[in-house]
Design a protein around this nucleic acid. Structure first.
Lengths: 341, 341
DNA sequence: TTGTAAGCGTTATCAA
DNA sequence: TTGATAACGCTTACAA
């Protein structure tokens, strides 16, 4: 291997390796002109301090890991974008891991990350009703962890969430005000905290308006597009809801497709509202009423929270919770007098 | 730091560090029962070989870097998803870098990555008419690089692209066949190879049908949503095109919004076709005719190509080019007799 | 202000 | 089959 390293650079300049090293660090004492000389020569030879050697020596990686259930979801790509920006501003890099909503992958990622590869983790969990106590089992090597959006409630760690209960309540209320009486709630994972919280808002809103709660109207969907198509179509034909509230955007899309196929008119026969960060919700046919989460901001705040912990030397590691507000944006999919755009 | 390392594990088991190390590597000779003993104790103590120490020793990082212009684009999130899967199958991790179409960030990322942090790079370039010779300037430390989709033609490196010229030609032809006579071409970066290739298909199709080429109908857009809104509205009102071909999906969305505002009816007054990997193109109002690139597959293939290079020990580093086929999917935005869904 | 040298946690070589 | 040891490239006391 004929690549450049600190020794060769030192030889080329007739200096010691420590002096070279100092030129690349901000704190150390070094003659300004020597530093300049070194940096220019370094640039010429394309020298960069080896990341792994530095990290081994310093015992930190300047890297954070981001674990998300999926990538093909506007919410997560926006959140990652926010995280990436904050990370870069702090001189950190980000590793991305996608669990595809598979719990075992999540466990593996987390376990693996405890080998020093990352200084901290930002995660939206993949859930299922599994044992997530594994997160507590890393003893002294415990990595700072920040949850965002999808969390495990029994794990005490800082988190950034949105006011899901309230949003769900308002969303359901909105459907009721628009005249819906049989409102189906479509969810991917009932047992996941986010599913439960959102569902409770739905249930309480029904109660407020004295609408009967029908267990069957809670439709548990899957992660497969094809399966969902079948599930939703049969729900629409058999249960005959006049309103649908979906907990993730892809279920709203699936419902649109199902309605197209079944010749159900939105919003006349069926009103739809969904959690979604889709920027082109106004362009759908009909435009989709959404509960829009501040996705980028959630990412930004989660990253800031992690950097807070990292810079406090593990001192005040008290769990913090930040709750951001989602917005309901009413559009034609829940309107009684839809406007042409 | 009281964290576990190979030495402590060795002490705990009354073995040498070399034996421990061997238990974690596949090649070395080691007694099966010793190995088992070590691995179980390791699990108990949550020991994992330190990634940075291994990498320093082995001179490789088992990490690849992915550089993309943006994340809030279905094409790139799908491509990354493909890359991530292949990487994981190969035991590699991925670092994500977003340039926001900023050339200087791209240069910085690449320069930085030459510190051993990654074993290879997969990149879709951010372009602009800049000097990209910097990519050749890393001498012995040159990292394997694979381009996908947006490339620099003058850099000789393996690449995965789609048949953009042909797709553009067919897209333009399709608009013409549907009756468009004044077709605007909306592009973000004329000078980028992908912009040029796609534009040439447009120009040649016009020629085939003896339609006049009007320079003004090439509309150079920006990366700002607000700016584009202004640019597109003035283009629509002043140039009065009856067809629009957009080179990236967000320009199609911007055109939809502009048409809504200006009361231009799609497809009656204006037909639209766009490059896009949007899975819900059929749900738009009207459903959007797209040239759909096999995004996930492009990512998968780019990753495979990189791993080919990595496993061949830099031997046969001859530039390869893989061309995948996009599909034109006709929908209502270019139809003369739009169907209700 | 600069140089010397030890050590970060691992793995490969060699010897036992 | 296992153990001792040097080396990977860097940073930081400490010495000069």
């Amino acid at each position: 291997m004929d690549s450049i390293n600190i020794k060769k650079l030192a030889e080329a300049l007739n200096l010691s390796t420590s002096t070279i090293s100092r030129a690349f660090r901000d704190n150390s004492d070094i003659n300004a002109s020597t530093k300049e000389l070194i940096l220019s020569k370094a640039k010429e030879l394309n020298y960069q301090p080896n990341h792994y050697a530095s990290n081994l020596r310093e015992q930190k990686s300047k890297t954070i890991a981001v674990i998300v259930p999926e990538l093909a979801n506007n919410y997560f790509s926006q959140a990652i974008h926010g995280i990436e920006r904050v990370a870069r501003e702090n001189g950190y890099h980000i590793l991305i891991y996608v669990t595809d909503d598979d719990y075992s992958k999540e466990v593996n990622f987390i376990r693996h990350l405890h080998n020093g590869r990352a200084d901290g983790i930002i995660m939206s969990v993949s859930g299922e009703a599994n044992d997530h106590n594994y997160l507590n089992k890393f003893g002294a090597r415990q990595l700072p962890l920040v949850f965002f959006d999808r969390i495990y409630e029994d794990i005490e760690t800082p988190r950034v969430v949105t006011n899901d209960y309230n949003s769900s309540f308002l969303a359901t209320e909105h459907l009721i005000e628009q005249g819906s009486k049989r409102i189906a709630y479509l969810v991917v994972n009932k047992s996941l905290s986010i599913g439960k919280t959102r569902m409770q808002g739905y249930i309480d809103a029904l109660e407020k308006y004295k609408l009967p709660f029908d267990e069957n109207l809670i439709v548990d969907c899957s992660n497969s597009y094809e399966e969902n198509s079948v599930i939703i179509k049969s729900a629409l034909t058999e249960l005959k809801p006049d309103g649908v509230f979906t907990s993730v955007e892809r279920l709203a899309f699936a419902t649109y497709y199902a309605c197209y196929d079944l010749n159900i008119s939105i919003p006349r026969d069926l009103k739809i509202i969904s959690f979604s960060s889709l920027e082109i919700a106004p362009l759908l046919n009909p435009s989709l009423t959404t509960i829009t989460q501040p996705a980028t901001e959630i990412g930004t705040e989660a990253a800031k929270m992690l950097f807070d912990i990292l810079s406090s030397d593990g001192d005040k590691k008290r769990p913090k919770e930040l709750v951001l507000q989602s917005k309901i944006i009413m559009r034609n999919s829940t309107s009684n007098s839809p406007q042409k755009p």
